[in-house]
């Protein structure tokens, strides 16, 4: 029993530089601000009691507790004020001011959006919600402001790494589950996915020109699966982390380039990589 507890402690409580949490905190704060901007034109349509989505109907889809802040302020004005407060909380979280309550506020807002309008959510909303909750219970590196984080060569205070490990696991599962699901789909298996994607409403340069590039897209379809499998593994191994970052950035820039309206998804996935950035690592010893 004691050995098991020691084992768990070594996984979760080993100490790391607090700047690593600060990087995630800053990136998450910025991403939540961007997501608020993304939601803004639709805020009344999606979250108010005069909008397109019924609150009671959304609550029926939720088998858990309905904790959405929009239930407390369902009018268009209430929704707008909630958005303004959430934006302020995200901005304060980014600069590390009153970081703990701001992290909780940002987590509550993120949860509220997916509970109130689950049918209008993208995968990135769930990534943000997961990360926001984990950050709310983790060290925040609040002593680091955005500018200091990149300028200072000093080592930060040492804090337990449990939050970072959980975020790293989350990135791992996002990529691997999506590959497992895709491998069961005929269009991913026969290599046609990317051609259809480019020709669809998601495609930035949609047109029949994609047919002439089908052989290239066929190879890129399979390459995408390999890259999605490889990214979390490469990110996890310190000596190969730069390759993981480079592949991930290339993949998500590619999605941003070929796709339209998907920049929030790409940016959110790249935000997750901040959980892997190790400030001040001097050695190539394996470890998180």
């Amino acid at each position: 029993m004691k050995a098991a507890a020691e084992g768990l402690a070594s996984v979760w409580l080993t100490e790391v530089d607090s700047r690593r949490y600060a990087a995630v905190r800053i990136a998450l704060g910025v991403l939540v601000l961007l997501n608020i901007a993304h939601f803004w034109p639709l805020r009344v349509a999606l979250f108010s009691n005069v909008g397109t989505v019924g609150g009671a109907a959304s609550a029926e889809l939720n088998p858990g507790l309905h904790l959405s802040v929009f239930s407390l302020a369902p009018s268009p004005l209430g929704v707008t004020l909630t958005f303004v407060c959430a934006a302020a909380a995200a901005a304060l979280l980014t600069i590390g001011k009153w970081a703990r309550p701001m992290a909780v506020a940002v987590a509550w807002f993120s949860l509220s959006t997916i509970q109130r309008a689950p049918l209008a959510t993208g995968g990135w909303d769930f990534v943000l919600s997961n990360f926001a909750l984990l950050l709310a219970f983790s060290p925040l590196g609040a002593e680091w402001r955005p500018a200091d984080l990149w300028r200072s060569c000093e080592r930060g205070p040492r804090v337990p790494r449990y939050g970072l490990v959980l975020m790293q696991l989350q990135v791992f599962v996002v990529y691997w589950q999506t590959v497992f699901v895709k491998m069961g789909n005929p269009y991913w298996r026969n290599g046609e996915f990317l051609t259809y994607f480019v020709m669809s409403h998601h495609g930035r340069f949609a047109g029949t020109w994609a047919l002439g590039w089908h052989e290239t897209f066929d190879k890129l379809t399979y390459l995408t699966l390999l890259v999605e499998l490889a990214i979390p593994v490469l990110l996890w191994i310190p000596a190969l982390r730069a390759w993981g970052l480079a592949l991930g950035v290339a993949l998500h820039l590619g999605i941003g380039l070929l796709g339209t309206g998907l920049w929030m998804f790409s940016a959110t996935m790249l935000m997750g990589y901040c959980a892997f950035i190790d400030f001040g690592r001097k050695t190539r010893n394996p470890g998180l």
């Binding site: 509970q115 995968g123 589950q177 999506t178 994607f197 669809s200």
Partner: peptide, 19 residues
């Protein structure tokens, strides 16, 4: 659902059907 920690990562699991 209560905590917002849903784990469904099926983005683009099949082809988009609409142009």
């Amino acid at each position: 659902w209560t905590t917002g920690t849903w784990q469904r990562w099926e983005m683009f699991h099949s082809i988009p059907t609409l142009r």
